[in-house]
């Protein structure tokens, strides 16, 4: 097995004043994932290395981190795609709790602020609320979000302004705004029609590039902007 060097940003809040980088040499196949290499460090070299990972199959969104400067899921990136020397850092823009674990609460607060759940106060129908294939296609892309925060923490507008609602929250608002069964689109558009809402977006496309689910985020944000424009007339 070839050797791979992991350069990992470490921070122990009880002992460190500021983050430090430590290097670890591990055996890894080109077809191993970066997560396998990090696991190898934790299991066989330094048990104090702290990071989040749950399903390890690209669905739970726990192990988003900066890998060679780009936001990626450690469980979806192969060693052969990042080379023999890999720099691993926590997501940018959040408080680091320890090593690669960041405080995600501000992210979830922004997510909650766009009412990311079905709102329909009409009485329950006789049968299920049906939806045509076309009606479903309108928001199909934005149903894929796993809330890993790779998009929001790659966004320069978010780096400059922690109050910016962020691409992930807009994606999840989009998922309900364009759902034919939902009745609170106007309320969500009003929330996002704000300097800290969609208008802080400068269409940089970092979010679209970072998304491990390949959601066309900038396009979704553009659709929300257009919806606000047509409801404002």
């Amino acid at each position: 097995m070839p050797m791979v060097t992991l350069r990992i940003q470490r921070f122990d809040p009880e002992n460190d004043q500021r983050p430090v980088y430590r290097e670890y040499a591990v055996n890894a196949d080109p077809t191993d994932r970066v997560l396998d290499a990090i696991n190898s460090v934790k299991w066989y070299q330094d048990g104090s290395l702290t990071y989040r990972r749950s399903c390890a199959h690209g669905i739970c969104g726990s192990d988003a981190m900066r890998i060679n400067g780009a936001n990626r899921l450690a469980c979806k990136v192969l060693i052969r795609d990042v080379g023999a020397k890999v720099t691993i850092e926590p997501l940018m823009g959040f408080r680091v709790i320890k090593d690669l674990v960041v405080d995600m609460e501000p992210f979830f607060a922004q997510f909650r602020s766009v009412l990311p759940y079905l709102i329909n106060d009409e009485g329950a129908p006789e049968r299920e609320r049906t939806q045509s294939v076309h009606e479903r296609e309108v928001y199909d892309d934005t149903t894929k979000c796993i809330l890993c925060a790779a998009c929001t923490t790659s966004c320069p507008s978010f780096w400059a302004d922690e109050n910016f609602v962020g691409p992930a929250a807009i994606v999840n608002a989009h998922r309900f705004i364009f759902d034919s069964r939902d009745k609170a689109a106007a309320e969500r558009l009003d929330i996002l029609n704000d300097r800290e809402g969609v208008w802080r977006c400068r269409t940089v496309f970092n979010c679209t590039e970072a998304c491990p689910r390949e959601i066309r985020i900038t396009k979704a944000i553009g659709e929300v902007k257009k919806a606000i424009l047509s409801s404002a007339r």
């Binding site: 909650r112 602020s113 109050n163 029609n193 300097r195 800290e196 208008w199 606000i228 404002a232």
Partner: peptide
């Protein structure tokens, strides 16, 4: 530049801001 906290998290739009200025 933020309004009152909104139920479920986040904040309302502050009062007195030009309505729809940003969209236009």
């Amino acid at each position: 530049g933020r309004g009152e906290p909104r139920r479920g998290g986040g904040y309302d739009r502050p009062k007195g801001r030009l309505a729809n200025f940003e969209v236009f």
